[in-house]
Design a binder for these strands. Structure first.
Lengths: 132, 132
DNA sequence: CATTACACTTAGCGTAGCTAACTAATAACT
DNA sequence: AGTTATTAGTTAGCTACGCTAAGTGTAATG
C-alpha cells in the first residue's frame, strides 16, 4: 500500500506541475476550497503538517494569488484563509487534468473496480487520520 | 485517492524516520532486498525516478552501510546493487514498525476491508505504472 | 581509429518536511 | 492593574528528494 502510494504520487506529480500546482499545494488548496474558510492552525492539522510548513506553503500560494488572508475581528491572533476565484479555478483545472491523464487507464477499469478504489480511498484516509 | 495517498505517506513518514529510513529509501531498499541484485538504471526505472535522483539516494544509503556496489565483470559501465545484512535488517525493522504503528487501526478493520485494501493497492500500482 | 551510444555521476536549482527560537495577542492569577 | 502563561503564526536554518544540463568513462560500430 505504501509502495503504491509513493508510485501514484510520483506519477501524478508530472500533471500537477504542468499547471504550477505541486502535490502539497493541491492538497491544501482542496481543503480551503471545499472546506470553506479555515484558520492556519486548523489547516496545518488537516494537512498533518507542522506550523512552519503550512506557513511557507500559504505564503507561496498567496504570492501566486491562489488565496487570501483575513485577521479575525475578535481574536486578532488568528487568520482566516479563503481561496480566490483564481485559486478555485486552478484547483478544478488540476483535477480535470488528472482525470484526463488517467482517463485511459481508468477507462479500462470496471465499475466495480472504480467503486473499490473509492471505498479504499475512504478507508486509507481514515487510517491516515488515526481512526478516532 | 490522491489526497488519501498524501495523508497516508505523511503519517507513515514519522515511523520511518524513527529508524533513519525515509519513504524514498524504504521504497528503493525494498526493491533491492526482495528483487535481488539490480543495476542502477533498472532501479531508477522501477522507482520511476531520474538517474541523478537514484544516484544520490544510493550514495546516501551506501554511506550508511545499507547496500553495496559491484562493477559488472563483462560490462564495466554497469553497477550491481545488493543490500547488506544491515540494510536487509533495517528494512524488515521498518516494516515491523509500520505494522505496529497501524496495528490498532488495522485491527478495527474487517477481513473484507483488508482484502479490499490489498486489491486496491494492486490496482493503484498498476495505474501508477501506466497499465501497459 | 573516430564516432556514437550507453551507464552512471556531478553541479546546481526548487519544493517540502522538520525543530528551535521569536513576536504578538489573549487569558489567567494574583 | 500587572505580571505570567498560553496560543497563533512567523523566521531562521537544517535535511531530504525531485528535476535538468553537462561531464566522465566504457562499449559498440563505421
Amino acid at each position: 500500500m505504501h509502495s503504491a502510494a509513493i508510485h501514484l504520487l510520483r506519477r501524478l506529480r508530472k500533471q500537477d506541475e504542468a499547471i504550477g500546482l505541486t502535490a502539497a499545494r493541491m492538497s491544501a488548496l482542496s481543503v480551503v476550497v471545499f472546506g470553506g474558510p479555515v484558520t492556519i492552525g486548523r489547516l496545518a492539522e488537516a494537512e498533518q503538517v507542522s506550523g512552519p510548513t503550512i506557513t511557507r506553503l500559504l505564503a507561496g500560494m498567496e504570492r501566486d494569488g491562489l488565496l487570501k488572508r483575513a485577521r479575525d475581528a475578535k481574536d486578532r491572533r488568528v487568520i482566516w484563509i479563503t481561496a480566490t476565484p483564481r485559486g478555485s479555478r486552478l484547483l478544478q483545472e488540476g483535477r480535470r487534468r488528472r482525470v484526463a491523464a488517467l482517463a485511459g487507464d481508468l477507462a479500462s477499469l470496471e465499475p466495480a473496480e472504480l467503486a473499490l478504489l473509492a471505498r479504499a480511498a475512504e478507508l486509507i484516509e481514515s487510517i491516515a487520520r488515526g481512526r478516532p
